[in-house]
Design a protein around this nucleic acid. Structure first.
Length: 190
DNA sequence: TGCCTGATGTTCT
DNA sequence: GAACATCAGGCAC
């Protein structure tokens, strides 16, 4: 694990989530390079009823309780994958869900992977996983290594970040741990 | 443009 | 056996 990245992610999810906005994900697949910018995140930790780690460590959530900087991929609703960046130190079940990204490079191949084009290419957690060919094979992947790298950028101006309640969940809806870049067209709809 | 619904697998009770 | 951190397509307005 890259030390700078590990250090950056060594804090609770609610702290890291807004700092991840504007950072870059680089994905290599089939010899092609895909680059996207993170524009929307949600924080989850073990004190949070909506979190997979809330009920303690299970085989499924093992990754969330592990070392920060790894990818936690889960399968949901019978047909979709979603990906999280594990944060906080080893032993704490804390992660940041990537909800939306903005395509920077390889857009055409993402459209092929999604078999879909247009604005709604990556504006949802399951959509971006499909666009980046992320599935459970990448569960536990170290984000400082290929074929999927997280590249931290300077944190964007907090004034350009909107913080709201989370969406698409049934528990702890009132916890305001959703963050997105204000006005970015790739953010999912509220 | 916006609500409603079906598809469908993994996990935990 | 139910819940689920979802999406896409259909149909009404």
């Amino acid at each position: 694990m890259n030390k700078t990245l590990a250090n950056f992610l060594s804090k609770p999810a609610s702290i890291v989530a807004p700092l991840l906005l504007g950072s870059i994900l680089e994905r290599e697949v089939d010899g092609k390079l895909l680059r996207v910018k993170i524009v929307e995140t949600e924080a989850y930790d073990q004190t949070d009823a909506a979190s997979h780690s809330y009920k303690g460590k299970t085989p499924r959530t093992d990754i969330m309780f592990g070392e920060q900087g790894h990818l936690y991929v889960y399968f949901t609703y019978g047909m979709h994958y979603c990906c999280n960046v594990v944060t906080d130190v080893d032993g704490i079940g804390s992660a940041v869900l990537i909800r939306a990204v903005e395509p920077l490079e390889g857009t055409k191949y993402m459209q092929e992977l999604r078999n879909h084009s247009g604005r709604d290419l990556t504006n949802g957690p399951a959509k971006l996983c499909q666009a980046l060919a992320i599935d459970k094979q990448l569960n536990g992947h170290d984000l400082s290594t290929s074929p999927l790298k997280l590249i931290i950028q300077e944190p964007i101006n907090p004034r350009k970040i909107t913080q709201t309640k989370r969406i698409g969940i049934s528990q702890a809806k009132d916890v305001p741990w959703r963050y997105y870049i204000t006005g970015n067209e790739y953010v999912s709809r509220p």
